[in-house]
Design a binder for these strands. Structure first.
Lengths: 260, 260
DNA sequence: CCAAAAGTGTTGGAATTACACCCATGG
DNA sequence: CCATGGGTGTAATTCCAACACTTTTGG
């Protein structure tokens, strides 16, 4: 959405195309420099950070809407996307908004119409995505003039109740890692043991014994060692590994029970 | 909602009181006769079974809406209620409805107004509740003339995509039992080992060794043996047990990791 | 040759599983 | 007295956690 006409039309007539009262917030996780990161956008007017989000088209399945929204932002296809909560309790999710709030706080010209669909109480469905940091090419638009990846430990204050949304996404991810393999969507196709090791440490927020960790993944048949190495510094080169797609998919479907 | 005027008002003006496009479906689990059951209502017109549900008031927090809806049906306070999914993908959750569908299929007189708020596409937030079967006193109303508890293994065809809703609730419950204690809300205050044992077997859908099971619960400090027994038949009387509220609450909050 | 990071096995303890017999009760 | 279901302990095994030294590499 980038031309002035498009925006005016969206503000005035958006409820013809989109369902009112409901939006999608997406928490896009990437992994870089041994850190779990999420993608934030800088919003005009408000001049602060917020999650990528959007609305659901009138006839669009919910999961397709989430897919479209993240796809448009990141350029990625075949996303790993997961719904994790619907937010409708916080004060931000109860209030209607006003012309004044939009103009003063967000610097948006929404006309004088107090009945605008954007003012109505809007609940939000949270989705998280796990993406390969290096494949993402972020697209900003006229509402969002900048973007940045942030360490999950250093998220700035966000719009509305979005800090809570991020917390819930993280909590879901941490719980899920006990029942499902994670990594296929966060790492490049070939990766080293230290990389995936540190990914798990980052997500779980605690140290994991390297020997036990690799034994476990190999024992589960989730990864296999390749005959290649990657030279990365003045020290021993690590072997590359790959996920065993079949075992991985099985584990995703059937679930695994384990501690790390 | 029981008088004709109330209903007419709800149909005509409901969108003044409730958010359109969004509803709540509740899966109410109870436990009776060694069986995990859910509460279904028989709907007029459609003449089939469906989940208890309702709408969210304009200014009402989402979780309060779920609470209100289940409370009104069951008469229970202090519910254990948990949001588990929002449904917006199935064909039933995409379509708008029509006067014809309402009159013919559901036997409801909604007037001739094709713009009625009830016709609009409606996504549904799924909540499940765990309740003490014996404390529930179900209230039907003019839309729902009968109710019945059904074994989770024998759920009849339900309205819309509600069979999928039930499946998802069950799947969530089964996953959750690995991380949280369950039973406090499903069993009476005092219960026997065979009762809680069979509850867990029912939820997990598999047999659990009785000796190991009780050792585990006692070792975790979740239950304690009382000095009473319950006489129930021509055989040895089982001891009664009680949950240790504090340990139970801690386990709920912090989570536990275990297999059964 | 040295600093930095990768790689690799073993062991003790804890937790989990498997398993069978006696006991209490009401009819 | 008998049929029914409740209660209890131990041994074998598996799984998990803890732990330290050697290898490789580029500079």
């Amino acid at each position: 959405m980038n031309s002035q006409e498009e925006i005016a039309d969206f503000i005035r007539n958006g409820s013809q195309y989109y369902l009112p009262h409901l939006s999608i917030d997406s928490v896009i996780f990437g992994y870089h420099n041994q850190q779990l990161k999420i993608l934030l956008l800088k919003w005009i007017g408000y001049n602060g950070w917020g999650l990528p989000g959007g609305f659901i088209q009138r006839r669009e399945p919910l999961s397709e809407a989430a897919n479209r929204i993240v796809q448009e932002r990141t350029g990625l296809e075949d996303l790993f996307l997961q719904q994790f909560h619907i937010f409708g309790d916080s004060p931000y999710r109860l209030q209607e908004r006003s012309v004044r709030e939009f103009t003063e706080k967000y610097g948006l010209d929404v006309g004088a119409d107090e009945d605008n669909w954007l003012f109505e109480r809007t609940l939000s469905v949270g989705y998280f995505a796990l993406v390969d940091y290096f494949r993402v090419s972020v697209r900003t638009d006229i509402f969002t003039y900048d973007y940045q990846w942030w360490d999950v430990g250093e998220i700035p204050p966000l719009l509305f109740d979005q800090n809570e949304v991020v917390e819930k996404a993280l909590a879901t991810l941490r719980l899920q890692i006990y029942h499902q393999p994670i990594g296929y969507n966060l790492l490049p196709e070939k990766f080293t043991l230290p990389e995936i090791h540190s990914l798990y440490e980052t997500i779980l927020g605690k140290e994991l014994d390297g020997r036990n960790f690799s034994k476990k993944l190999v024992a589960l048949g989730l990864i296999k060692k390749l005959d290649e190495r990657r030279a990365i510094g003045p020290h021993r080169s690590p072997y590359l590994y790959q996920f065993e797609k079949d075992a991985y998919e099985d584990a995703l479907k059937q679930g695994i029970v384990h501690t790390y």
